[in-house]
Structures are given as C-alpha cells and as structure tokens.
C-alpha cells in the first residue's frame, strides 16, 4: 500500500484560535463560460456555480468557490471519484469547459476562533473588515507573501487553501503569528 504523507501539520490550539489540517479532501478546478457549461456543472454538482465575485455556494458537503469569471474551485467531503468522473465526462470530454483534479495542488487548513482575522491581518494586505462579517465569501490574496484562497464558511471559521509545497512554511508562519497575538 502507498502511504499518504502530508507536511508536518497537526492540530494546534491558541487563545481563541484552533488550527487544523483537513486532508485528504477532493478539490476540483472548473473552467468554462458558456451556458451549457453552467447547466451541466449545476446539474451534476446540484450547486449553481456562483457568478458574483468573491462568493461561494455550499450545499451539503460540497462548496463551489468563485475564483474568476470563468474559474471555480469545488471541494468538500461529499466529492468522490464518481462525481469527478461524471464532471470529466460531461464537461471536459464534451469540450464544454475544463475539469481538473487539483486535490493535491492545495492543502486545506481550517482556522477557527475569534482571533482568526487577527492572525490573517498580520500577513495579508486584504481588508477583512467587511469580509469577517459576511458568510460564504471568498478571497484570493497573499498571506506572508504566499498565495492563499480563503473561504469564510461560518462566523470566524476559515478554510484556507495553500499550495502544497508552501504549506509547511505557511503553517509554521501561522503558528508563529498565533503565538504573539
């Protein structure tokens, strides 16, 4: 059997902040722009892909994050190989758009607690004032000079996606920043 290895990331707790790695979890990149693409994707995923910038849509355990006018990230516990296969067959193979498995391109770190935005503000130039009071919003920005996608699921609960090769470094940085709140 092949073993699964993730960077040295384990659950950590700080005052009003809990950090967790949520892996392995399936992630897909969806690209497309025509009506058939939206219809197909919506039907297969049972989610209308959000078209409003910086927002997300979540149904059960699948979330669709807006990344650009023609790009979405789909992730969640309910995504399985079959769902990925049907998206691939009905979208990629029919040339309606593109579906790419990016499960291991990103590592999902969950951050929750009142101090989430305190830590994020240390390394990100993004203005979280509005963001932190809105649910189901998404931002792609920089955190300590590293590209991240932040998904605000629930109040003070953030799913942070970081490219796998950067994840150990960013994890260390988040922990360091959390220890000097």
């Amino acid at each position: 059997m092949l073993n699964i290895n993730y960077p040295k990331i384990e659950k950590k707790e700080y005052p009003n902040l809990e950090l967790n790695i949520v892996e392995p979890i399936h992630k897909l990149n969806l690209r497309g722009k025509n009506r058939d693409f939206f219809t197909k994707a919506g039907r297969i995923l049972s989610i209308m892909l959000p078209t409003e910038p910086n927002t997300s849509a979540t149904i059960k355990n699948i979330s669709a994050l807006w990344l650009s006018p023609d790009e979405w990230m789909i992730y969640g516990k309910d995504i399985d190989k079959n769902l990925m296969l049907s998206l691939d067959t009905e979208i990629s193979k029919l040339n309606l758009g593109s579906v790419t498995d990016i499960s291991d391109q990103w590592v999902l770190i969950n951050m929750k607690g009142k101090n989430v935005f305190e830590v994020l503000s240390k390394g990100s130039p993004f203005d979280f004032n509005k963001f932190k009071n809105t649910k189901n919003v998404v931002v792609q920005t920089l955190l300590n000079h590293v590209d991240v996608i932040l998904h605000h699921n629930d109040r003070n609960n953030i799913d942070l996606f970081v490219r796998k090769s950067f994840s150990e470094h960013l994890w260390l940085w988040i922990n360091d920043s959390s220890s000097f709140l």
Binding site: R31, G32, G97, S98, T100, I102, Q105, R163, S165
Partner: peptide, 12 residues
C-alpha cells in the same frame, strides 16, 4: 482560442 490552463505543479 478554446484553451484552459490549470497549474498542477503541486498536485503531482
């Protein structure tokens, strides 16, 4: 052009 690019550097 009908082309989509996706970075998969870290995926593999």
């Amino acid at each position: 052009l009908d082309v989509w690019l996706t970075s998969v550097t870290d995926h593999y």
